[in-house]
Design a binder for these strands. Structure first.
Lengths: 310, 310
DNA sequence: CTGAAAGCGCTTACAG
DNA sequence: CTGAAAGCGCTTACAG
């Protein structure tokens, strides 16, 4: 902790200039011209002394720190969150900022506390950008979750399924997100001329999940394929189907979402959607810093990882 | 962002005292006595104006912010990390501090950058405390990972297994941790008079994993049970065993670690160890703040969640 | 019991 | 091209 000792004043003293001048040099302040020799001396002194600016002092002066807080509710399991955070982190780092993550419930109070304590440059909600997506063309296609959900539906349709289910987790978990995803699935189905996917809820308890699937099968005998909210829910479908003696994919095809490592461990292996969100993370970073995002290119499209469950 | 407008000076003005006095009141500075009426006026003014101290200014003055950074390399999947972070977060919040998480590789440079930018009160490495554990008695028992690993070994031993394997992930992933866990497993086996568990490596690719298990079975025909590094590795063992036509648990029993939700979705269901780390999180919080930890009690012991795989 | 003053380390008008 | 000065919002000796 006792590292940040060297101060701007030290650098100034060592190079025989005022702190103001040292600051101008070190920040390359565009509105100030500094003679080349002075600049060289200051830079060398800073290097030799190992000067690093005190972020707190700078933050007090500038009104905000160079910290960006990402608030995440859910867990970090799939490929999406991993790549999103990587992109966000790298892009922020490239522009002198630091990413820190806040976990857990968004009690308004505790969020305010964070803001007051560290004066971050911004607070991002995980997935916000992704939920929206960017419109790619005049037909209003998105590269976000809508497109990736459509990928599930298209995949099942291509394999000959017309009557689909959309499988969601137990009540309460990720219910907002599940609702949005279900809506996207319905849109995708409609655009293919398919009926809207039926809603299938899969609780965590295996016995309850099996019963849930059994009841569902009775109510929706025509449904031959399931697009799941995520891999976990998909694996629950697989387990329930197995316990009901159903053949997967013969009686019921299943596709997961977001390609966790667990998808490779089921029997049959779980088909799923691999999502690369690094560009989304970078876009979020640039947006927060008020920079242009045009040169980042489009997000890598999602892709289906085909296994035996579909 | 434009919320933190009200300053200490405003509160002081509104209550007709100096900023010094207002500060003394609001911080309940123990070395200062303030008359009751003054105190009341300041507190009311602060409340009415919605005053929240500027954490950056305070940090500059005090030399460190009230922020604690938790550095985590791996993913947050099992019960352990979830409960650890919850305990850490709540305990820090109870003492006026804020927890933020930094993900990803510990490049020394980027860590330094974090420190310089936000001057956190402390930086914790995830699992550090847990890796060590606390000695509970004179026999040197630990409540940390050693004890939880022993739980796996004891469970398999109780079910009649004498020749065990310890299953680890592919090269590179969590290899330090895997080595430590394997050593704990060996200690536990020795204390039961069992031979040291053989090392079984399970790559992510299902075909490679199956081959790995096949080779292992040839080399260690006596091994009848596997304790796994985590649930993911355990599920890989299950899948590989299934593909080899082995009966689980008849031919090979399997126990996972850290009770992810995925453990309930395999066929057969995966027996695993549930670990409650909230107390560890609280201990870490208190330690970092230089507070006593005695009244926190012992960590909840781990427990085996019995399913069909053992 | 209360207040004026200094200072944490920086940035940035402003004056020269 | 360079420097002296003010000020971001707080805390805490120090004086009264």
């Amino acid at each position: 902790m006792g590292s940040s000792r060297v101060t701007l004043r030290d650098v100034a003293a060592a190079s025989g200039v005022s702190p103001s001048t040292a600051s101008f040099v070190l920040n390359k302040t565009p509105t100030q011209s500094i003679s080349a020799p002075t600049r060289a001396r200051v830079e060398q002194a800073a290097r030799e002394l190992g000067y690093v600016p005190n972020g707190i002092a700078r933050a007090l002066r500038e009104g905000a720190s160079r910290l960006v807080v990402l608030h995440v509710d859910s867990t970090f399991e799939g490929n999406y969150s991993r790549t999103y955070v990587r992109g966000l982190d790298e892009e922020l780092a490239a522009h002198g900022h630091v990413l820190l993550v806040r976990h857990g419930r968004t009690s308004a109070k505790s969020t305010k506390e964070v803001l007051d304590t560290v004066s971050p440059r911004a607070v991002l909600e995980f997935g916000e950008r992704y939920l929206t997506g960017r419109v790619l063309d005049d037909e209003g296609r998105h590269d976000g979750m809508a497109a990736n959900t459509a990928l599930q539906v298209h995949h099942l349709h291509e394999r000959g399924h017309r009557h689909l289910a959309f499988a969601v987790p137990e009540r309460g978990r990720a219910s907002d997100l599940a609702r949005i995803r279900a809506r996207f699935a319905a849109q995708a189905a409609r655009s293919l001329g398919l009926p809207s996917p039926a809603r299938l809820q899969l609780p965590a308890d295996p016995v309850a999940a099996r019963e849930s699937l059994q009841v569902f099968r009775g109510a929706h005998p025509a449904v031959s394929a399931v697009a799941a909210f995520d891999d976990l829910v998909a694996l629950r479908v697989l387990a329930a189907a197995g316990r009901l003696g159903l053949d997967v994919p013969g009686d019921l095809a299943v596709i997961g979402f977001d390609a966790t490592e667990y998808a490779a461990t089921s029997t049959p292996g779980l088909t799923t959607v691999h999502i690369e969100a690094e560009v989304h993370g970078r876009i979020a970073a640039r947006s927060v810093l008020g920079m242009a995002v045009d040169d980042l290119g489009d997000a890598a499209p999602g892709r289906v990882i085909q296994r035996a469950s579909s």
